[in-house]
């Protein structure tokens, strides 16, 4: 579904992503782990071209990413993204947030757009919040609206960029539950997260990154029980105490 070949991204003199190659098969859940600054978010952001790769090749659903804005927008419509800071549009209600891109990007009819928006809001468990503005919602509810907004586009792939990192602890579970439901539905997902429980239970692949490089890629059972690389072991020791 996603093929990344020799991806390099530099910010000035810093090589944030240094020659990363990665395949994400259809229906798989890839969880990228790593210390902060390891380039994991940058890889994610290169997939839908929020960051322009310095070098390398990214193929999403058979389409090669080029610099042409039309083709980038076409690919972005197929790739949903959820951000750490939710990034809901503050001047719109939850429902309007979910309806906007469907209408202007997918060009669906108003009635269809509304139906889908209500459906997705019910799917993430807060149908009663349709007419609430983002600042009237808790962090967990905002993030669930953000997930519904991405899902309403009927994307083929979902990218999660630390979706629970900005949440109060008691709200993390409600967002993870929505993500687990997505995993069960067979969605192709790439997640950057620090939720080890989610990684262990939901991932089909764990990718461990450090200093812009992929250090290890294994199945979750193997990664958490007996990581191959010393750096993975050091990372796990720190995370799991």
């Amino acid at each position: 579904m996603i093929i990344i070949r020799n991806l390099v991204k530099t910010f000035g003199a810093v090589r944030a992503v240094d020659d990363v190659s990665l395949d994400v098969p259809k229906g798989s859940v890839t969880v990228i782990l790593g210390p902060s600054g390891s380039g994991k978010s940058t890889v994610l952001r290169c997939i839908n071209h929020l960051e322009e790769p310095t070098n390398g090749e990214i193929i999403v659903d058979g389409l090669r990413m080029t610099k042409d804005s039309k083709s980038i927008n076409a690919i972005r419509a197929e790739v949903g993204m959820v951000f750490q800071q939710f990034n809901l549009f503050p001047h719109m209600t939850a429902l309007q947030n979910i309806m906007l891109a469907q209408r202007v990007v997918r060009k669906r009819s108003q009635a269809e757009v509304r139906d889908i928006a209500l459906q997705q809001l019910a799917r993430v468990g807060i149908p009663e919040k349709a007419d609430s503005f983002p600042n009237q919602l808790s962090g967990g509810q905002q993030q669930r609206v953000a997930i519904a907004r991405a899902l309403a586009m009927h994307p083929k792939i979902m990218l999660f960029d630390e979706p629970t990192s900005a949440l109060d602890p008691e709200m993390i579970k409600e967002v993870l539950d929505v993500m687990l439901e997505l995993v069960a539905s067979g969605m192709t997902m790439v997640c950057v997260t620090h939720e080890m429980g989610f990684a262990r239970n939901a991932a089909s692949d764990i990718v461990f990154m450090d200093h812009g490089k992929i250090i290890e890629r294994s199945a979750p059972a193997e990664f958490f029980a007996s990581p191959r690389e010393e750096r993975s072991r050091a990372f796990l020791r720190q995370i799991l105490h």
């Binding site: 972005r76 419509a77 790739v79 993204m81 891109a101 990007v105 586009m153």
Partner: peptide, 16 residues
């Protein structure tokens, strides 16, 4: 306007 607003809109496939 926060960068995240542009990013969220662009990530949904919206044009400039």
């Amino acid at each position: 306007i926060e960068r995240g607003q542009f990013e969220a809109a662009r990530a949904l496939g919206m044009s400039y």
